[in-house]
Design a protein around this nucleic acid. Structure first.
Ligand SMILES: NC(=O)c1ccc[n+]([C@@H]2O[C@H](COP(=O)([O-])OP(=O)(O)OC[C@H]3O[C@@H](n4cnc5c(N)ncnc54)[C@H](O)[C@@H]3O)[C@@H](O)[C@H]2O)c1
Ligand SMILES: NC(=O)c1ccc[n+]([C@@H]2O[C@H](COP(=O)([O-])OP(=O)(O)OC[C@H]3O[C@@H](n4cnc5c(N)ncnc54)[C@H](O)[C@@H]3O)[C@@H](O)[C@H]2O)c1
Lengths: 217, 217
DNA sequence: CGTATATCGATATATCTTTATCGATATAAT
DNA sequence: ATTATATCGATAAAGATATATCGATATACG
């Protein structure tokens, strides 16, 4: 593998490249240049070249990269060809939406089951995936060698659930609850914090409006 | 306002500070230091101080910040006291989960309605919020002065929907579809790209495993 | 064949972000 | 009153990320 020390920003851009490449007609667009990708995604062309360099074999001057090869290499780098299994904790509105989403399989994530504390939810299914009681969590994770846990319980229970996941041998946590989770050093928490996204949106608007006001006033 | 040129990273951390501050008992914890916050959220204390400096009035040596004041100032800075209205396009699994989520009100976001192309969905409600046909989008956005659009349609329709939103006077877009959207310069797109999050999780795991393998082999 | 051009990779520069250091100050303890 | 300590803000240093520049190279075309 060529990885070793790829930057987080680069890593997060790779799925965008992949998405774009997949929209191309593989028959007519046999090769693609960093310039083209950069223009389509509104990025700097040098950045695209650097990002690709950390993932793929060589591009050729005047030609660019072979589209199909590039797709394969990015997919391989991101582990899409080697799916990881995950469990969801909290089969509420959001948890069920995630459980029912087919897209994750394409990204190398296989959600195998959900767990919930609510007896009324336990025993039901969503998208063919069973919802188990919390008491079964540890056993199932260990037995199925599951390393990713997805937290979609209310914020006040998230730390407790997080601890159970760590206890069950989970190594990476995808946290949708709007709280900071405290974990041992070797565990990774990736927050999908919507409040952070909202902060960006809302600041953009308030700045826009204060600019307007200044122009007028 | 003290804003003007706050970094995106800082902006995204503010909700974390706020969340932490709100867990504190306002009676017993009248003041709080950057050191304490940093420890609780696993951040560098200088970073916390710098972040707070761009939002709030002075902290006092040996004392820290007045908890209640800090909460108010961050909330004000993030515009939580001055809610923005938004619409959702695509009332599918994810769209409905977002529609049904109460938490957004707390973050100064008021989702007023959803729109969908599917006749079977149009006319129904979710959490007391109506789902309208796409034909009503422009009129409603203009009439209600809505500036935020949330995209939860399948990826292949996202660009088209995005164009309609821009056409309807939207200034900021929160995009949940896994594609890059092309917009005029003055419009902000904030991607909630789950594939990017997954890339980070998955790389963490594969690195972990290759380290293990190296130790053993 | 020679020249123009698109594109690459590498290296250098600029910008943004985080972390470290230091003097100042408010409180508490001696 | 003096000293110790927690904390602040400001500034400096380090680290990460993005952008600009430049020589090299593969193709196309005259
Ligand atoms: N719904 C959304 O659109 C949305 C958006 C952003 C963030 N979130 C966050 O995602 C989380 C879930 O939101 P939701 O709207 O799905 O809530 P929800 O109330 O619909 O679902 C929560 C589920 O978690 C279960 N649960 C509660 N405590 C548990 C525990 N200790 N162990 C196991 N299961 C437990 C409940 O039984 C319920 O089924 C919340 O933290 C919320 O802030 C949700
Ligand atoms: N469900 C998830 O958990 C999840 C997770 C990550 C990303 N996403 C992304 O969010 C988006 C929605 O996912 P979903 O699972 O809710 O899908 P879904 O199929 O359940 O819902 C999509 C909705 O959009 C509507 N729609 C389709 N084309 C439209 C158009 N042109 N104009 C207006 N409405 C239109 C459909 O009628 C449907 O109601 C997708 O892009 C998906 O990739 C979903």
């Amino acid at each position: 593998m060529i990885d070793q020390g790829i930057s987080k920003q680069t890593l997060q851009r790779l799925p965008f490249y992949l998405g774009y490449l997949k929209t191309l007609d593989k028959v007519t667009v046999e090769t693609v240049s960093a310039t083209t990708i950069a223009e389509a995604l509104n990025l700097n062309q040098v950045q695209v070249r650097k990002d690709l360099a950390s993932v793929c074999s060589l591009g050729r001057p005047k030609i660019g990269y072979v589209t199909q090869e590039l797709i394969c290499e990015i997919e391989h780098f991101l582990g899409y060809d080697n799916a990881e299994s995950a469990v969801i904790i909290g089969a509420g509105k959001l948890g069920k939406a995630l459980l029912g989403y087919r897209g994750f399989e394409e990204y190398g994530l296989n959600i195998v089951a959900a767990f919930d504390a609510d007896e009324n939810v336990v025993g039901t299914e969503e998208n063919g995936k069973k919802i188990f009681p919390m008491s079964k969590l540890k056993n199932l994770c260990e037995r199925m060698k599951i390393h990713i846990g997805i937290i979609t319980v209310p914020a006040e229970y998230a730390q407790r659930v997080c601890d159970s996941l760590v206890e069950s041998g989970i190594l990476a946590i995808w946290n949708f609850a709007p709280v900071h989770l405290t974990v041992p050093e070797h565990i990774l928490v990736q927050n999908e914090n919507m409040a952070s996204s909202l902060a960006v949106l809302s600041k953009h608007l308030s700045q826009k409006f204060s600019e307007e006001a200044q122009k007028i006033g």
